[in-house]
Nucleic acid binder design. Structure first.
Lengths: 225, 225
DNA sequence: ACGAGTATTGACCGATCGGTACAACCCCCG
DNA sequence: CGGGGGTTGTACCGATCGGTCAATACTCGT
């Protein structure tokens, strides 16, 4: 298979004077929208070309293959999230604040790049072989950031646990926002990040209910009801 | 379009002496597995027939159309979850306990019917028209159960909030388990339901950290670090 | 002006897609 | 025994699928 030279790389979309996005950029963007809307297998390359206003031949010149398009698309997005997340973890903020920032970054991505987020969450499993492995590795690395922050908190005595259940529970609450979060109505990115972080940190119990239950198994109900 | 008589309905899989599953049952089961594995659009009806050991003609006699197969499959699963959830909410248990049971039902479904859960979470958007609307309505009704329980807790002074952010945050943590929960290794259904409920109720902060932060904005870090 | 990449075109490929038509089957009730 | 409903196999349909190719246009620095 001949692979044409593609300039895939993260964060080089603004090369000085770029006022017009490149053809490749446009293809990635439109493909993300279509994949998010109709799924990877539910979207034909013909339709992608149509949306990006490129003929099929030219399309393949840029993307190599349909699966490669999905891969490039997803990889770029996850890598950016990873870079931003790493910066948060590397900062000298206290763990609680790091968690807040991680949530904020997450919500920002959902708000600004809804299509890409949806594709990564929902269509990643359509990748095969090396591409699937590589993307999974990136995702795992991103998830491990949460574990790191959690562990920092445990070491400082602020957080209760840093096992994978905690990590995945938190990630679930955050990831799921791609399904329902609408930044245009209801809470904005900052406010929602604040609320979700608050939920994650404090849980659902009121102060009184929590103080009666904490460190005592589970007799909450007996006290209240 | 002629619609053959299909006996779709919930919870009638054990009709007294049923030791062998019906052809339709087998098709639904195999289709769920394939849809979960390769996605709705990524699975051909030919392959479904192959897996269910039924030729295409016979297959279409039972399912009507491919999309209808996805619909029947999903509907049945969501309806069962709804019935079980309603029973929990209708019980006279206290809110905290209801929440625990809802989580347990959820995890049980993920453990016992992984394929169906995955399909509902990931492929529901492949439905169109009436079928999409009807399934969405069922799902919304199921989600509203959580809101009900949360509100009961707020009324009793046990829970802090019952808005949609709380509901969707909790649902996110629970729903996301379909991605990572493996009942065969690590925690079992009961233990995981316990842990997740605990997370949802208490959050991540330790008792000390929480008591210094609750009702005081967000100066936690200043106290600890 | 020219030649070397870079980018694009449109026709074409075999394979597979979801769906249909219909004859033949099986099996139970009369 | 016979017939009829529920069920199945086979052959077939037009449309679309992802992907390829050689020829052509564009756009530079020299």
């Amino acid at each position: 298979m001949r692979v044409p030279i593609r300039k895939g790389s993260i964060s080089m979309d603004s090369s000085g004077d770029s006022s017009r996005e490149s053809t490749r950029e446009r293809i990635l963007r439109k493909a993300a929208e279509l994949f998010a809307e109709r799924g990877f297998h539910g979207t034909s390359v013909a339709r992608i070309g149509e949306a990006a206003e490129v003929q099929r031949g030219a399309l393949y010149y840029h993307i190599g293959s349909k699966e490669n398009l999905l891969y490039d698309l997803s990889k770029r997005h996850v890598e950016e999230a990873l870079v931003r997340g790493r910066a948060v973890v590397a900062s000298d903020l206290p763990p609680v604040e790091k968690m807040r920032r991680l949530a904020f970054e997450h919500l920002s991505a959902v708000a600004a790049r809804r299509a890409e987020v949806t594709v990564v969450m929902r269509e990643m499993h359509a990748l095969t072989g090396d591409r699937a492995e590589r993307l999974r590795a990136l995702r795992d690395e991103h998830q491990s950031l949460f574990k790191t922050v959690l562990q920092e908190g445990v070491d400082l005595g602020v957080f209760r646990e840093a096992d994978s259940v905690s990590v995945l529970g938190i990630l679930g609450a955050l990831n799921w926002t791609y399904v329902w979060f609408d930044p245009a109505r209801g809470l904005g990115v900052e406010a929602l990040a604040e609320r979700l972080t608050d939920m994650i940190l404090h849980g659902q119990l009121t102060a009184e209910a929590a103080s009666t239950e904490i460190d005592s198994g589970k007799p909450v109900e007996r006290v209240i009801a």
